[in-house]
């Protein structure tokens, strides 16, 4: 009886996992099929249906490489800003005593809960006033600023755990506070930097709202805006849409395959320890 329930639960779990992967299977094989084949035989693999035309069409029409460049530019520069500003602030909060730093930490934690959509409308006029409309730097700064509270939270938490003796030894050896941050803490921070890059990096890469609002989607597309505009509401060419989906997510998927552990850790970080 016990054996039976075990087998049944294993089979049910397996069946549900397969069911959950059907949509993924559907778009991956669909990207290599013509529209009529996708519609008629949604789940069949047949070498006769194979085509790469979807990809060549999508790359051309979606301005894929310029979209990819813009997305990469925003993501990388925003991450650099987040890591610099976040680790500096985290160091000050975690290692230096003073009421100011405690208050600052409280403010940071409370900013973590504010949803971006809430500030969308004032940001539109702010960006226009600053002359940053349709400028990638506007997106970089906004993404950096909105991802910063979580980064500071992570960095502070990690740096609080570093033993004080290490720091004291460095002071005795004549190291300045800046030197301690730069030579001692920054190298120790690598795992948090990885967590932070993955968490914020995926958010920024996959973002639609910020870039759609602040960039002209025709002149300055990012990947998610491009596929939204191209395949959004009246999609009928499924093959093109699937090819677009694959290419827009490919960098993240490749990174996921190699850095799985960091991904899972990064995306669930801050959700409590178990």
């Amino acid at each position: 009886m016990k054996q039976l329930t075990k087998i049944v639960s294993s089979v049910v779990l397996f069946a549900f996992t397969v069911l959950m992967w059907v949509p993924i299977y559907y778009f991956v094989i669909g990207a290599f099929k013509k529209r009529t084949d996708i519609v008629k035989h949604p789940l069949v693999i047949n070498l006769k249906m194979f085509t790469t035309e979807n990809f060549s069409y999508t790359i051309k029409k979606m301005k894929l490489f310029s979209a990819l460049g813009n997305t990469a530019f925003i993501t990388i520069l925003a991450l650099v800003l987040i890591i610099i500003a976040g680790s500096l602030a985290g160091f000050a909060i975690a290692r230096i005593k003073g009421k100011l730093f405690n208050i600052y930490y409280g403010a940071v934690v409370s900013l973590m809960v504010i949803p971006f959509i809430g500030a969308l409308i004032p940001l539109i006029s702010l960006i226009k006033d600053l002359g940053l409309y349709n400028n990638l730097w506007g997106c970089v700064l906004i993404q950096a600023a909105w991802n910063l509270p979580f980064a500071i939270f992570l960095f502070t938490g990690f740096m609080r755990g570093i033993p004080k003796e290490l720091e004291e030894a460095a002071y005795i050896d004549g190291c300045s506070t800046v030197g301690i941050y730069w030579r001692m803490f920054l190298p120790l921070l690598k795992p948090v930097i990885a967590t932070c890059c993955i968490r914020s990096g995926i958010g920024i890469w996959n973002d639609y709202l910020v870039t759609n609002t602040l960039l002209n989607s025709v002149k300055m597309p990012t990947l998610m805006v491009a596929i939204y505009q191209f395949f959004g509401q009246y999609v009928s060419e499924y093959g093109y849409a699937f090819a677009g989906i694959i290419m827009a997510s490919l960098p993240v998927i490749v990174a996921f395959i190699f850095l799985q552990k960091y991904f899972i850790k990064g995306l669930t970080a801050g959700a409590g320890r178990g």
């Binding site: 602030a89 000050a92 290692r95 230096i96 500030a119 409308i121 700064l141 600023a145 506070t177």
Partner: peptide, 27 residues
């Protein structure tokens, strides 16, 4: 050390102030 700490807060404060706090006040 305290002053260095305050100085360390500057980049984060400037970014958050312009792009998070001001828009939130404005909304």
């Amino acid at each position: 050390r305290y002053l260095t700490g305050v100085f360390f807060l500057v980049p984060a404060t400037v970014l958050s102030f312009i792009f998070v706090i001001i828009p939130l006040i404005n909304v």
